[in-house]
Nucleic acid binder design. Structure first.
Length: 209
DNA sequence: ATCCCGAGGG
DNA sequence: CCCTCTGGAT
């Protein structure tokens, strides 16, 4: 924590009390499955991702199995999730690279992760924190929107928001804060019609209506 | 019409 | 910086 911030700490405390069960909502049983589920999660809800990965991972639990699928076969499986062409191509390419260069395992460092096709900084941070328990704060659409509404940051890019948040939050709370902001963004601080009257942060939020 | 645990390309 | 990819839910 470079700059202790009492207001930020208070917000996190309130969110933690409001959402005691906040955590990863993607289903997975190993780092590879979380990687695939996170790639699939772009622009769709995790509920739909879980519906698809349940049978996908049952039939194709690892990289060795996934690459047996053709591009078209994988596209047909993941089609309901949208962006299916790019996702299928990236999943097959990434899986092949994992087998060729990483013994079929998922690397646990940022540089290696973001070098994989279809894996950007947000996905890499999700893997680092949820699969390997490293301190990381992934900035997705919810974290971006909620933290800006609360004026925790005025960063204009997800990366800048990540830098601002990690600078004012203790390391051991980075992953927790990621989940708290997502849960809050889904349930109360929604993009379209935020439920400000029932928000536990009403008095702390400069964007409240 | 807008958004959903984004990433890559121009 | 912009644009494109995409089905499904609200």
């Amino acid at each position: 924590m470079d700059q202790p911030n009492a207001r930020t700490a208070e917000i996190i405390t309130i969110l933690a009390q409001t959402y005691p069960k906040a955590g990863c909502e993607l289903n997975f049983s190993n780092p590879y499955q979380l990687l695939i589920a996170t790639i699939l999660s772009a622009q769709c809800t995790d509920i739909k991702v879980n519906a698809v990965t349940k049978s996908l991972f049952a039939d194709y639990p690892s990289a060795q199995e996934i690459i047996k699928l053709s591009q078209t076969e994988l596209e047909n499986i993941i089609r309901p999730l949208g962006l299916f062409h790019n996702k299928a191509r990236n999943i097959l390419s990434t899986s092949q690279i994992l087998l060729d260069r990483y013994q079929g395992e998922v690397p646990s460092d940022m540089a290696s992760l973001v070098s994989l096709p279809g894996v950007g900084r947000k996905t890499a941070n999700v893997i680092l924190s949820n699969a390997f328990n490293f301190p990381a704060l992934a900035v997705d659409t919810h974290v971006f929107r909620v933290s800006r509404r609360l004026d925790l940051t005025r960063g204009k890019t997800p990366h800048q928001v990540e830098l601002d948040l990690t600078a004012q939050i203790p390391r051991d709370l980075w992953s927790k804060t990621h989940h708290l902001l997502i849960w809050h963004g889904r349930r109360i601080c929604k993009a379209q019609k935020p439920a400000c009257p029932s928000c536990p942060l009403l008095d702390l939020c400069p964007s409240a209506q």
